[in-house]
């Protein structure tokens, strides 16, 4: 796990690769193409790239029109602008008519860092998850990002893919398949389950190592497909390990933790602890220090596991 790749870089690469194979793929950006890496696509296919300027609402509406005419538009900007800012355009122009628009948002979560709380999206998973017809994917690393983008092209309908700014450890090989609606067990264990997404997956694996040294064997699950959700894998984890800790770089309200809690509450109630940003906005700072301050470290996961086990 020494190599680090930013998921946005992986996106920039795979979009060009897919663009070569599929002439129906087009890309849009809202004046952030160098940051979201759609600039790569612009360079390769200038006639199939549309800069919409600082006008996210218009970008989503234009993407809807492109999709209605049979193309596969990828619309990218920072997560905070790609979701909350354009909620109604996503809802009424894209999700309601079930149009084939792929929204790939970068700079999600607090690891945006120095730009501060105004730019740190900690509610986008909740916003996107509640929308009918919308698929929501939070890849854990660069290779999974590429597979998720490939899968998004194969799907007919709107897809939201949540990416980050900073480099994250590589977990998967380039060949590892990705299937929407399927979680992935990365480490077996029967004492507790840790279900994580995005940058928190590698931290969950670290936490599991620490726990193992203490004689606690944790199952670690990558739940990158938040919607559709692998409910059966969650129920199985609840049944076989008796407790679940969720970990996400997102508010503990409405995201992965919310989704897992909904499933366990209805189908197999067990204690659940949610590691994530508490009900608060972020702030400026380096990503590493922010992760510590906002409780998103392997130690926070270990602590949450121990709290569940102490109550047994």
């Amino acid at each position: 796990m020494s190599q680090k790749i930013a998921t946005r870089d992986a996106y920039g690469e795979i979009l060009v690769e897919l663009g070569k194979k599929n002439p129906r793929i087009v890309a849009l950006d809202a004046d952030l193409s160098k940051s979201t890496k759609t600039a790569n696509f612009k360079k390769a296919f200038p006639q199939r790239f549309f800069n919409m300027g600082v006008a996210e609402a218009d970008m989503m509406g234009t993407a809807a029109g492109l999709a209605a005419a049979g193309l596969i538009p990828f619309a990218s900007t920072f997560a905070v602008f790609a979701t909350g800012r354009v909620y109604d355009q996503l809802r009424n122009s894209i999700a309601y008519p079930n149009l084939n628009v792929k929204i790939v948002a970068t700079h999600a979560g607090i690891t945006v860092g120095e730009d501060g709380g105004s730019h740190q999206s900690i509610e986008d998973i909740a916003i996107m998850r509640v929308m009918p017809n919308m698929t929501v994917i939070v890849p854990a690393d660069g290779p999974e990002t590429k597979k998720a983008v490939e899968a998004a092209v194969e799907m007919d309908g709107p897809v939201y893919i949540r990416l980050g700014r900073s480099g994250v450890p590589v977990i998967f090989s380039e060949e590892e398949p990705f299937t929407p609606g399927r979680g992935k067990i990365l480490r077996e264990g029967s004492d507790i389950s840790i279900i994580a997404v995005g940058i928190m997956v590698s931290k969950a694996l670290e936490a599991a190592q620490t726990l193992s040294q203490k004689g606690i064997e944790a199952r670690v699950i990558n739940m990158s497909s938040i919607k559709p959700l692998d409910q059966d894998m969650i129920v199985q984890a609840a049944r076989e390990t008796g407790g679940i800790v969720t970990a996400e770089e997102h508010s503990i309200i409405g995201g992965l933790g919310g989704a897992v809690s909904e499933v366990t509450a209805e189908r197999y109630p067990v204690p659940v602890k949610r590691v994530g940003v508490q009900d608060t906005f972020g702030e400026s700072g380096s990503p590493e220090l922010l992760l510590e301050k906002y409780g998103l470290t392997p130690e926070n996961i270990v602590k949450a596991v121990e709290e569940i086990l102490q109550k047994r």
Partner: peptide, 9 residues
């Protein structure tokens, strides 16, 4: 916006 998208397509 949607009309523009169709026109660009």
């Amino acid at each position: 916006s949607a009309a523009n998208g169709m026109a660009l397509a």
